[in-house]
Amino acid sequence: MELRVLNYFVAVAQEKNMTRAADKLLISQPALSRQIAALEDELGVKLFNRENRHLTLTSAGQYLLEQAQEILELVVKTRKNLQTTSFISGDLTIAAGESLGMQRIMNVISNIIKKYPTVKIHLLSGDYSYAQRKLDNGTVDFAVIIGNTSIANYASLTLPEKDHWVILMPVNDPLATKKVIKPADLVGRSILNSQQAQELQLFQNWLGNYSNYVNFIGTYNLNFNGTLLVKNRAALMFTLDHLANTSPNSGLTFKKIAPALQQNIRVIWKHGVKLSPVAELFLKLLKESILQEQYFL
Rank of each mutant, 00 (worst) to 15 (best):
L3G: 13
L6E: 14
L6R: 14
N7C: 13
F9K: 12
V10G: 11
V10Q: 10
Q14Y: 07
K16A: 12
T19H: 13
R20W: 01
L25G: 05
L26C: 15
L26K: 15
P30Y: 06
P30Q: 14
I36Q: 13
A38N: 14
A38Y: 06
L39V: 10
K46G: 06
F48T: 01
F48K: 00
N52I: 02
L55F: 02
T56H: 02
L57W: 03
L57D: 09
L65K: 12
Q67V: 08
A68F: 07
A68D: 03
E73S: 11
K77A: 03
R79K: 08
K80P: 03
N81Q: 10
S86R: 14
G101T: 11
M102Y: 11
R104G: 02
I105E: 02
V108L: 05
S110R: 10
S110M: 07
N111I: 12
I113N: 06
Y116C: 09
K120V: 14
I121Y: 04
L123A: 08
L124R: 14
G126N: 07
D127Q: 11
S129T: 13
Y130Q: 15
Y130R: 08
R133V: 06
T139L: 03
V144Y: 13
I146P: 00
N153T: 09
N153G: 15
A155C: 13
A155T: 11
D163I: 10
D163K: 07
V166C: 05
V166F: 01
N172T: 10
N172M: 06
L175S: 05
L175V: 06
P183C: 01
D185S: 05
D185C: 04
I191H: 02
S194E: 07
Q195I: 12
Q196G: 07
L200E: 10
Q204P: 00
N209V: 12
N209K: 15
N209H: 14
L222E: 11
F224E: 15
N225I: 09
N225E: 13
L228H: 07
L229N: 05
V230C: 02
V230W: 00
V230M: 01
N232K: 13
A235T: 12
D241V: 04
D241K: 09
D241L: 08
H242F: 15
L243Y: 04
T246P: 04
F254N: 04
I257C: 04
P259A: 02
A260R: 00
I265R: 01
R266A: 07
R266M: 07
R266Q: 15
V267E: 00
I268N: 00
V273F: 13
V273A: 13
K274A: 10
L275C: 04
P277G: 13
E280N: 15
L281E: 14
F282M: 09
F282E: 03
S289M: 05
S289I: 05
Q292N: 12
Q294W: 14
